[in-house]
Simulated scan of single mutants.
Amino acid sequence: MKLKRFFWRSLLSLWSIPLIILVAVALVTIRKEKTVEIKRELDELQELALTLTAEIRSFPELNNKDLGELLMTQARLSRIRVTLIEVTGQVTFDSEKEAAGLESHRYRPEIYQALSGQIGSSSRYSDTLKKVMFYVAVPVRRGSQIIGACRVSRDLDLATMAYRSTLKYFLTVFGLALILSWALIYFYLRKLFKPLNELLSIISQAETSGEQVVVRASLLKKLGELAGGVSQLISQKEELASHLREEQEILAGLFEETGEGWLLLDNEGKIILANETLRKMFPDLDLKQEFYWQAFLWPELNALIDQVKEKLKPVSSQIERQGRFFSCSVSWLAGSVS
């Protein structure tokens, strides 16, 4: 059970390593991809705006009808919104709304930059369209004089469609890579723990079984000194158990020669030894039980043993069984009761 808990703790610790690495890589990659996608979108809008500006300069006025048709056609083809603003901030054309109904755009950040002679850009919520838009505005010049600004914009959802597609693909790859790394770690760790589980099973068998237990040569090769040390401990345990059995047999023989019934208990009340004379004296007893109080349902004997545990001195008494009286002596033998 402890080895199983250790296995799962080790597995979770190892699983956290690829998780942290992949999450870090994912965050860096996603942020980089987003930056690249935004720059690509702004560059595309800037190129469109500059192209339209070259067309606008060929018309005598910004509110020219033919110019409006040209800009509307380009807006539909490029899936953008085109807005033409005079130097005063008055909107003369908008591909999405009626220009006459729009307020002055002079102090919109990208327009303000364009009317100052720079290329302006921003990403913000549009009060007119009620959505987040990318904006790029460039100055419209006639000679050296700025006569207005041309602004192109695109819906954020449309502008980031390629980014979202890339993000979805990347997250799928990230998930598959994480699952694959976790699976490889799991099976590799199981392979490492397999000989340890086998060794633990051998140790458990050696503790509970009286039979001889042998550590396989292949296990010794895999675990080296660890398995060799366990094998040596098992051999020592079996040797001690063999000596103990021999000593119990010798002790049982000595007890039989006395002609008296003997019962040897450990400190917990488990039956260590019951000689043959005792079995013949009380054939109705079930001495196969683990504890003496399961075999001897005698209150008098229980009381004597309790006295010995308390006083740590020999106690003697007469016990009556089926009309016969038996002399009973109980002694404390440094950790056991006899």
Rank of each mutant, 00 (worst) to 15 (best):
S218D: 15
G148I: 01
S331G: 10
L48M: 07
S78T: 09
V140I: 14
L192C: 10
L71C: 04
L233S: 08
E249W: 02
G259S: 12
G261H: 09
I17H: 08
Q118K: 15
T166A: 15
G117Y: 03
Y292M: 10
F7A: 04
K313M: 12
E55N: 09
L226Y: 12
D43Q: 10
A75M: 03
L297N: 15
V82C: 04
L171P: 13
A252L: 05
W298F: 13
E300P: 04
E260K: 15
T277Q: 12
R79Y: 07
L285K: 11
S121A: 10
D157F: 08
K191A: 15
L48Y: 01
G68A: 05
V213Q: 11
K4L: 09
L223M: 14
T166F: 12
E257I: 11
Y135M: 04
Q307F: 11
W298T: 02
V25C: 10
R40H: 06
N275L: 07
W8D: 11
S165G: 08
L220Q: 08
T73E: 14
P195Y: 14
E41Q: 11
V132F: 06
F282S: 04
S126W: 01
A206T: 11
L264A: 06
L312W: 09
E320R: 12
I319A: 09
A241C: 03
Y163C: 03
L27Q: 14
E41S: 04
A334H: 13
T83Q: 09
G228T: 02
L184I: 10
K191G: 12
K130N: 09
K191L: 11
F325W: 12
L158N: 06
R81M: 07
L278T: 02
R76C: 01
A252V: 04
N267H: 14
S231F: 00
D284M: 13
M133D: 00
D306Q: 15
S235W: 04
A334T: 03
Y135D: 02
E41Y: 01
M1T: 05
R164M: 04
V330C: 06
R151H: 04
E247N: 05
K32R: 15
P299M: 10
A149F: 06
K168A: 14
I21M: 10
E69K: 09
S16H: 10
E110V: 07
N275I: 06
L176A: 15
R81F: 00
S338G: 08
V308N: 07
G143R: 03
N267D: 11
T92R: 11
L333I: 07
C150M: 08
S231E: 07
V152R: 00
I111K: 05
L27E: 14
L263T: 06
A274P: 00
K288T: 05
F93Q: 03
A149K: 05
R81E: 01
N64C: 01
Q318R: 10
L244Q: 05
K288H: 13
E247D: 01
K313C: 01
Q90D: 15
S78L: 06
Q205I: 11
A49H: 00
Q248N: 01
P18F: 03
G323S: 12
V82W: 00
S58D: 04
L226S: 05
I250T: 05
E246K: 02
K130M: 03
F170A: 12
L200F: 14
R108D: 08
Y163E: 01
Y135A: 00
F296I: 09
P314G: 08
K2D: 07
E47K: 13
